[in-house]
Amino acid sequence: MTRKRIWIAFALILVGVALCAGLIAPHDPYETNAALIRLAPCRAYPFGTDQLGRCVFSRVLYGARTTLSAAFFLIAISFVIGCMIGMLCGYFGGIADGILMRIANLFLALPQMVIAIVIAGILGGGLSGALIALGATMWVHFAYQARSHTYMIKQQAYITAARLSGKSSLYICLYHILPNLLLPLATNALTQIGSTIIAISGMSFLGIGVEVPKPEWGAMISEARAYLQLAPWCVLFPALAIILTVITFNELGDLLMEKEA
């Protein structure tokens, strides 16, 4: 119970920080200052400053917004698409199911990094390429999960009863299958937040995610790693932010999974 409260509180704080970054941040995250380069943490700059004299604390706060909103957006879209397609495949089966699932398999086989690089090449970089590349495989996982759950639910007597009651396939999908599908899928979605944040930060670290100077944790680590010995705080704080966020959402996912079981 207390463990549960702690993680929920943590998650709420993280989301709060992401939403209110502008109110909390002491400085403009883009503001450079040649006089204050690589300043160690102090009262005015709690996490120090980076190689351009920008406030690392403010950038970590704004980074929460960039990373979390990208992760939520990506998961939400993948969730909706995967859920719908998986549910339809599981419910109706047949040829459409065979074709759609084969296409899904193709997406799963796509190498994420290669797509991200290709899209970055076409669209000229930025977060969208990374998100499309990650989303291309993510929806498939939701689709598979939705499909297998739908298949199990479909065997239940209450679905047969609803059909004999004259209910249409649309009604059955919306009012019987979907509500019984949401909890297991939402649990999965929550556990995906952690790995998605790592993936987004990882891509940004490699330079195919967000573009400089936008504050993003992975990109910040990437920029700062060259002078890790001179200003370790520039790497330490964004790295801590990633670790804390990933652990928080993984724990939340575990809690939901326990509740489900």
């Binding site: 007597a157 209450y158 047969t160 009863a161 059909r163 004259g166 209910k167 019987h176 509500p179 019984n180």
Partner: peptide, 24 residues
């Protein structure tokens, strides 16, 4: 279709609880 047949004929199943949507 079962939707039509259900007007004159209904089933009662072995699985009592499973005959009802757990969330409804």
């Amino acid at each position: 279709r079962p939707q039509e047949i259900g007007r004159f004929l209904q089933m009662v199943f072995q699985d009592a609880q499973g005959s009802f949507d757990p969330r409804m």
